[in-house]
């Protein structure tokens, strides 16, 4: 067996691939599913927090700042371990799926809150004054004038963050979530061949390159000159 044949046999072994691809496909589904859920709930919760902070009720703002700082400072892995192993002890058992979804949603929400809040702060005061002067109330001003502009400012940092945090679904292996990397690891141990890891890498490319492409398009489309 030549070196090249050995390389192919080790990393691109069709026999192993044929045997394990259904498991990996299932894992890919889990990764994509959790990732999409995290993106939706994390972004929504982050926007809600930014809007609440914009109400400028000091005790509430301080709570939100504390939440955002803690969630951004802690490694997501620590959150998952705490949720999965400690919460059952206080009567809140969580399965692996819920654990990963909740932990990453909270982390993304913290970053999303900071980005959207930054966008709100970047707007000139005159924007809300103009809206209020025509009779729009606080909420109408927020939804029709402030948020649409704040989102555009927040989109570039947010797309990067969504991608970075979605990749953290792989951390779910510590709580035995059957996401794609976890499936690949057990498949390569069982088969004694790392080909499933190659397949997992391919799966990540398949999943994330379209998202990166879509994010780039969103960023250019949403830019406008002021």
């Amino acid at each position: 067996m030549s070196d090249f044949e050995r390389f192919v046999h080790t990393f691109f072994n069709l026999e192993v691939a044929a045997k394990y691809w259904p498991d990996l496909l299932k894992g890919l589904g889990v990764t994509a599913g959790v990732g999409v859920l995290v993106a939706i709930t994390g972004l929504l919760f982050g926007v809600v927090l930014a809007v609440l902070r914009a109400m400028q009720f000091r005790p509430l703002s301080l709570l939100i700042i504390a939440f955002a700082d803690i969630m951004r400072a802690l490694p997501p892995l620590v959150l998952m371990i705490v949720f999965f192993f400690a919460f059952p002890l206080i009567g809140m058992p969580m399965n692996a799926f819920t654990t990963v979804w909740l932990a990453l949603s909270l982390v993304l929400a913290a970053y999303a809150e900071e980005s959207v809040w930054g966008g709100i702060l970047a707007l000139p005061r005159g924007q809300s004054e103009a809206a209020r002067s025509t009779g729009l109330n606080w909420w109408q001003t927020m939804t029709a004038v402030i948020l649409p502009q704040a989102f555009r400012i927040a989109v570039p940092p947010l797309t990067n963050r969504v991608i970075a945090i979605s990749k953290n679904v792989a951390l779910g292996s510590v709580v035995a979530l059957n996401e794609v990397l976890n499936e690949a690891q057990s498949a390569s141990s069982n088969s004694g061949n790392p080909t499933p890891l190659t397949m997992a890498a391919a799966a990540y490319l398949l999943l994330f390159i379209p998202i990166l492409y879509a994010a780039r398009r969103l960023e250019t489309r949403w830019q406008w000159k002021v």
Partner: peptide
Amino acid sequence: INTVRQRIGMVFQQFNLYPH
């Protein structure tokens, strides 16, 4: 005040048009 403001227009030095 929101009802009152419908009856009072305001024009600003910096225009304050909504760019979006």
